[in-house]
Each structure stands twice: as C-alpha cells, then as structure tokens.
C-alpha cells in the first residue's frame, strides 16, 4: 500500500519480485544494490538458508529521486521461489503496489514458470488483488543461456494483459533497471489516478 507522508515529504511504495525457484529474483535485487549509490539505498536484507536460497524474503529500500517535492522510496521485496514456501509468499504480497514476474527462459523451467504464475494469480487473489489490475511487468531472465525458449513463445505462454515484457540477464544487469523502471512507472501512474 502506497504510504504518503506529507510531513517528511515521502512516498513509499512496495514492489515484489515473484517467480519460480532460482529464476533470479534475488540476483535482480543484488544487481540494483551493487549498482546504486549507497546514499540512495538502504541495506539489502536477505533472509536466506545456508545454501543461499531465499527462506522468507529479501528486502531493499531504494530512493529514486523527487517527484513534485516528494522523495520516492521503493521497498523492493523478493519471495522465496521454492514451491513449499507458499505461506511466506502470500504474506509478502500483503500491501503490494506492483509486481515483477521473473521468468526463467530455459526450456526445462517452462512448467515451473507456468506453475509460479498461476500461484501468483491465486495468492494475489487471496489478498484481495487482481493481477489484471495491479501494476505488473514480465521479465524474461537468463537470455544469455543456450537452451532458451524464444521470446515470442514465452510471451504467448506467460503474458497476461499486455504488460511490458523485458528481456534480461540479471547476473550482468541487462534489463534489470528497465524492469524496475517499467513497474515503478506504472505504480506512480496509479498514484495520479488517486
């Protein structure tokens, strides 16, 4: 839920990166963290297992700049991708303003993408949101790998409502900021509607 503080002149919005296990959600955040000036971002909090799999969530506050005299702060979250962490995923979607679905472009992960997208729709619904109405971006990650599905086929299978589709290689930063920009833009446009 967007939170606007007139006293400190701040807008705070919540963006959640969703997707199947090992699709690169944390890598997106890590890249943003590594390439942003320290004064524009807070700590990257990672609640991960010993093997670096996200256990509960990753979190990073990011300040983008000023709009109409208000500082815009985006709180970026990832969910744990593994199927059995569904209860945690639901919790993290509470109060969400925008969602990025990170799809794994590899052929063998197609079923996992579809399952995770279905799970996203279901979990949004359980929190009272509708994927068709919420700011939303589809990121096709790992475009540098050999065994990938063509963009058109991925979009045909995963695109839900004409949302922006961004090709990415999160590990090297390709498409990471384009994705963030696409979703942030939609969130701020929603604010204009009130």
């Amino acid at each position: 839920m967007t939170f606007i503080n007139y006293a400190s002149r701040e807008i705070n919005c919540k963006i959640v990166y969703y997707g199947p296990g090992l699709c690169g959600k944390t890598t997106n955040l890590q890249y943003i963290f590594d390439s942003t000036a320290p004064q524009a971002r807070g700590k990257l909090i990672s609640l991960a297992t010993e093997t670096d799999r996200t256990l509960f969530f990753d979190f990073m506050p990011l300040e983008l700049g000023t709009v109409r005299g208000f500082k815009t702060r985006f709180h970026l979250y990832t969910v744990p991708g593994q199927v059995f962490y569904d209860a945690s995923r639901k919790l993290i979607l509470k109060g969400v303003d925008g969602v990025v679905f990170v799809a794994d472009s590899q052929e063998e992960r197609m079923d996992a993408n579809i399952e995770s997208l279905y799970n996203l729709e279901e979990n949004l619904q359980s929190q009272g949101y509708d994927l068709m109405k919420i700011p939303y971006v589809l990121q096709l990650n790992k475009r540098d790998l050999g065994n990938i599905v063509p963009v058109e086929d991925l979009a045909a299978e995963l695109q839900r409502k004409g949302e922006p589709v961004v090709e990415a290689v999160a590990a090297t930063g390709v498409g990471v900021f384009d994705t963030l920009k696409a979703v942030a833009k939609q969130v701020l446009t929603e604010l204009r509607k009130g």
Partner: peptide, 15 residues
C-alpha cells in the same frame, strides 16, 4: 487493483 494510498498529513504526523 492496489489498495488506496494512506495519506499522513503534517498535523497527524506531529500528533
């Protein structure tokens, strides 16, 4: 659709 934004006015903030 996302929730309605929460607006915190200056006076409320100081209260």
């Amino acid at each position: 659709m996302a929730d309605t934004p929460i607006l915190l006015r200056e006076q409320q903030y100081h209260q």
